[in-house]
Amino acid sequence: MKSIMTCKGIAKSYGTGDIVELVLKRVDLEFFEGQASVLVGPSGSGKTTLLSILGCLLAPSEGQLLIADDTVNFSDKSSLTEVRRQKLGFIFQHAQLLPFLTIEENLAIVGRNAGMQDDDIKQRLDGLLHRLELKAMRYKHPAQLSGGQRQRVAIARALLHRPSIVLADEPTAALDWNTGKTVVELLLEQARMEKAVLVVVTHDTRMLPLFDRILSIADGILSEQAQTAAAENIFYTQP
């Protein structure tokens, strides 16, 4: 499988002098094309910190992040923006669609920002809205949609510009179980179809069997669990 993203000895600490808090301890990790990973762990364990570093939003204190064999230069904000613009797609906890734009406009501006041609944007938008069953919502504003529909739009927004990596932060936290499961299934399906690396942070352990790979983090230490064992151990919460 083709390697898309690699973490080499990534660590993150906050504070200076005697008051230094190490929130992420030496993470070595590799993500492959089309692979779906889930990142779990208790609150404050470092999940969001790791996701922020993978998303080129936060600089690590140590180590390197490589995307498609290129080392990310965290000291250059402009190049970080370029990486996010071209190679990353994001899904946030509350979708965070722009409330003043229609669904179509919310998606189109991401394509335009990534430099896609109008024809390509239209074709891509039509396809994604169809696949995510959002065609009827096209000209509506986010406030007119349910939470699940908004997250489906967020999935479309994350995938529209064909990023090689999609990062999702608690995408089901604000949704009920059934809606959340549907959203995650859709996300997995679409990411696999696009052959994108998918990394999802979640508290909802019921989702774990859906992923290819389970990454667990506690006290800043990352470990990988075997999928079958994890599913057996954790899936007890499935209603």
């Binding site: 923006t81 370029e82 996010r84 613009r85 990353l88 946030f92 965070q96 722009l98 409330p99």
Partner: peptide
């Protein structure tokens, strides 16, 4: 919040 979202999505300052 919306500006932060745009920044995260890869919009330049």
């Amino acid at each position: 919040g919306n500006y932060a979202t745009l920044l995260a999505l890869g919009f330049h300052q």
